[in-house]
Design a protein around this nucleic acid. Structure first.
Lengths: 146, 146
DNA sequence: TTGCATCCGGTACCCAGGTACAGGCTTACC
DNA sequence: GGTAAGCCTGTACCTGGGTACCGGATGCAA
């Protein structure tokens, strides 16, 4: 039960050793126990936590949001419970998916239409590229343009 | 044909005036003509260019990539065309959507299973949360865990 | 020609998410 | 107990994508 040293955790989790300190500084990692000499000794669990963080990051969550997610299990006294938070995250994720689907459809349309020049494209009314307002949710037809 | 002043372009394109200078600095916008007194006079097309930049950004391209894309129309000497790049971006976006769908399904499962602690969850083999290999594309069963 | 909005260049700052030293102490192993 | 590898703190720096402020010059309309 001696725990893991900083370098071991970093290697095992595939991050820079400095990143551990950074995460600790911004509150993503709890302060670990120390040896008498002041060296950090991490519980084995930390590797998992970091992998969770990295997984969530890959999905497009900011570190702040990840901290939120990690709080779900932590000190949730009087705060919205796991189910509520998870449900909230769920709708966030669904919104994100919807956004990306608009983008995907737009890219598909652009490829299908054979656009070769962005600026020229944008002058053609039939151009599928969303120069007016992407977030406004409309995707043009995949006709040829430019 | 006097052209547009910086403020006019910024307003028309919906960006900050400083952003125009920033884009000029990083090579996204060509240096415009100047008045005798040194004020920038932009061709009307600039508004379109900026809208193209913003659209491409929304599609997930970095400014560097956008600069590349804008170069295509000008002097493209046997480099990958817009379609190739858009196709590449398309698969990136599709991968991202797939990942998010995994997380969506697993969040649903987590809510249904009544998980109480993300990190504890991640230690249970039956846990629906995808900590091990998210990008690796496997989804666990939605059994109860933790 | 005067007055006011706009623009100029330069510099400095902001946020997120890290990464890189430097100079000194600790741990581990022989 | 000696030595090398590893760790400590602090501070500074990096990239990307902008924003903000300054003092002074310019443009334009009345």
């Amino acid at each position: 039960m001696t725990g893991l040293r900083a370098g071991e955790v970093a290697t095992a989790a595939g991050v820079n050793r400095q990143t551990l300190r950074y995460y600790e500084r911004v509150g993503l990692l709890a302060e670990p126990d120390r040896t008498l000499g002041g060296h950090r000794m991490y519980p084995a669990e930390t590797v998992t936590v970091i992998r969770v963080i990295k997984a969530a990051q890959r999905l497009g969550f900011s570190l702040d949001e990840v901290a939120d997610l990690l709080d779900l299990g932590g000190h949730r006294h009087g705060k919205p419970g796991l189910r509520a938070r998870a449900t909230a995250k769920l709708s966030e994720v669904e919104a994100r998916i919807a956004d990306l689907e608009v983008i995907r459809d737009t890219l598909k349309a652009a490829v299908a239409a054979g656009c070769d020049d962005l600026v020229a494209c944008s002058r053609v009314p039939a151009c599928p590229l969303p120069f007016a307002g992407l977030a406004e949710g409309k995707v043009a037809d995949a006709n040829t343009c430019c």
